[in-house]
């Protein structure tokens, strides 16, 4: 509590814009990547920025105060989560507890879910329902991997994990916890809502699900939400498995590498049925993560 002061506020302000811009940049690049895989030209890499500006400048419709509240809460929550992600070895709040990150992320989801539910469109709600159901699928493997690391280091600080991997490739957790990395890659796909786990958006089935009723600045915030989500989740994986980074551009590159992989998979996969999706997550990611946790647990005795 003692370190709350004006400077921290400024830093946080900076970080919130950093997370948003990095996410938007990735979104633009991602669209480009997908387009190239599909042999298209694709939009320019700054397209996402343009979209957001445009969305914010248009007038929008709302149905009730819960919608406003939910949308604000969602982005606010995710940005707050982004503060806890160590960026290039720097934790702005001085704390980067992984448990806080995992839980704080939920408030972003909750806000989003609440906002779009309040729009009253059943398609949006179906999307939310699917997203939440899927969450039960991917959270458990992630938690198990995180616990495996916590077992090793006796700490739940993300920064500790990142610094422990300093000093060359060989120290990266991707090699130390190969099973775990596989599991978290699968889960990550679901976390981002990319194929084969894109049930939440599923444009063909439920008309983009949660987004269906959003317009103008609401849609803009929705975009930003996705952007921050990208920043948070790629940042999480970089810190967990890819050795973190000591300089900002390396960190960004690693983040993009993670996103790039995900986009490649997304571009070539079809969609599961929703219960298949959960079952697969448990079956593959879950088993791998459980194995990893078990092995680590045996090592720690």
């Amino acid at each position: 509590m003692s370190n709350i002061n004006g400077l921290l506020s400024l830093k946080l302000l900076g970080f919130s814009f950093l997370s948003m811009s990095v996410g938007l940049l990735f979104m633009g690049l991602g669209r480009k990547v997908t387009a190239r895989i599909q042999r298209r030209l694709g939009p320019p890499f700054y397209q996402a920025f343009l979209d957001v500006f445009k969305a914010f400048s248009k007038s929008s419709i709302t149905h009730n105060y819960v919608m406003d509240l939910g949308i604000i809460m969602s982005l606010g929550g995710l940005i707050a989560t982004a503060f806890f992600i160590p960026f290039a070895g720097y934790a702005v709040l001085g704390s980067s507890s992984i448990v806080i990150i995992l839980y704080l992320m939920s408030i972003g989801y909750l806000g989003m879910a609440m906002g779009v539910s309040a729009s009253g469109n059943p398609n949006a709600t179906i999307g939310i329902s699917r997203a939440l159901a899927l969450m039960l699928g991917y959270e458990i493997p992630i938690v198990m991997i995180v616990m495996a690391m916590m077992l090793t280091y006796g700490s739940s600080d993300l920064l500790t994990f990142a610094t422990a991997q300093q000093g060359g490739f060989a120290n990266w957790h991707i090699f130390k916890y190969p099973l775990g990395f596989l599991a978290i890659e699968i889960s990550f796909q679901a976390m981002l809502g990319e194929a084969p786990y894109d049930h939440m958006i599923a444009p063909a089935e439920i008309a983009s699900g949660p987004m269906v009723e959003l317009s103008g600045k609401y849609l803009g915030i929705g975009f930003l939400l996705h952007a921050v989500q990208l920043y948070v989740e790629t940042g999480l994986i970089v810190n967990l498995f890819l050795g973190g980074a000591s300089t900002w551009y390396v960190f960004l590159l690693k983040q993009f590498a993670v996103y790039f992989t995900s986009m490649c998979i997304n571009a070539v996969m079809a969609r599961y049925r929703i219960e298949q999706g959960i079952a697969h997550l448990w079956k593959y990611a879950g088993t791998l993560a459980l194995l990893q946790l078990f092995i680590t647990r045996l090592g720690v005795f």
């Binding site: 506020s9 946080l12 302000l13 919130s16 914010f56 406003d68 949308i71 604000i72 809460m73 982005l75 606010g76 929550g77 995710l78 940005i79 707050a80 503060f83 806890f84 709040l93 704080l104 408030i107 600045k217 915030i221 930003l224």
Partner: peptide, 13 residues
């Protein structure tokens, strides 16, 4: 952190 983030978003909103 949460309040600040929400304030930022509220400003944007």
């Amino acid at each position: 952190a949460f309040v600040l983030a929400v304030a930022v978003v509220f400003l944007l909103f």
